[in-house]
Computed example of a mutant assay.
Amino acid sequence: MGGKTKIFYKADNLKELIKFLKKIENKVKIFVLSGGSNTLITDSTYDGVVIKLSNNFSNMSLLSEDIIIAGSAVGDKTLSEYAMSNSLGGFEFLSCIPGTVGGGIKMNAGCFGREFKDILISIQAINKSGQVITIPAKEIKFKYRDSGLSDDLIFLSASFKGFKKNSDLIQKEMKELKEKKEKAQPTRIKTSGSTFKNPIGQSDKKVWQLIKESVSIEKSFGDACISEKHCNFFVNKGNAEFKDMKKLIEFVSKKVLKKTGIRLETEIKILE
């Protein structure tokens, strides 16, 4: 689902991206679209600029025997496979995360006890004025599913540190993680992944447990429904519209607040 945007710009290379940013002169709001795997986009026209980085931002290379540099358009799974081919451990969890390096850094994506912050050394980014900057990971105030970095930054590339590990062991762990994920979460259907963040510090329960206690899993708005396999995943059964999915998100949020007193925060990015 999702409609049009006032301006859609696909950056072919850094030089062209800088030229474009200087042309729009910081006069309009910008949304950087990564893989789109955790994004809910309005069906009406978005009044701003959506920027997408081309495949020219998806290069990878070894800086040293345990450090990988990856463009922000590199897929998370692709990065994990590149690490495996170079016998580098620590990247296995990325094989289970849909999306790209840029989006993963922005939201500090993670699963099975590991997050982007655990492997990140530094990022190279560009601000809305077209200035390229480098930010060391130690200067980033990472939190659960949040990097705290400005929305005005466009990530270009990042360096990651792993450790030497037998590639067969890496492959075995990646296979085990994939099987674990497929048992617990819906796959190969229309979903934006986890809808809400776990309420860290507010409850010992996971968000799916709070939803299960507060809402009838059969509840739906149009073709927007709650997954039977994992109730923090909301599904488009076929023809759901943006307004249907938004209604479902708001309905579940209100029900959980009324039942538990906990105000849920969305993990998915809503573009409207």
Rank of each mutant, 00 (worst) to 15 (best):
Y82L: 00
M84H: 02
S85K: 14
S85C: 05
S87V: 08
G90L: 04
F93M: 07
S95P: 04
P98L: 11
T100M: 12
G102L: 03
G104R: 13
G104A: 10
K106P: 00
K106N: 07
N108D: 03
G113R: 05
R114L: 14
F116I: 15
K117Q: 12
I123F: 01
I123A: 03
Q124H: 09
Q124S: 14
I126K: 05
K128E: 14
S129L: 11
S129R: 08
I133H: 08
I133K: 14
P136T: 04
A137T: 03
K138C: 12
E139A: 11
I140W: 00
K141Q: 12
R145Q: 05
G148E: 00
G148C: 01
S150L: 07
D151W: 01
D151T: 07
F155P: 03
L156M: 10
S157V: 10
S157P: 09
S159W: 05
F163E: 14
K164F: 04
K164V: 13
K165M: 13
N166W: 04
L169A: 12
Q171M: 11
M174G: 02
K175M: 11
L177G: 01
L177Q: 01
K178E: 03
E179L: 13
E179T: 07
E179H: 11
K180C: 11
A184K: 15
T187M: 04
K190N: 15
S192E: 14
G193C: 08
G193Y: 00
T195E: 08
K197R: 13
K197V: 02
N198G: 05
G201I: 07
S203C: 06
K205P: 03
V207N: 02
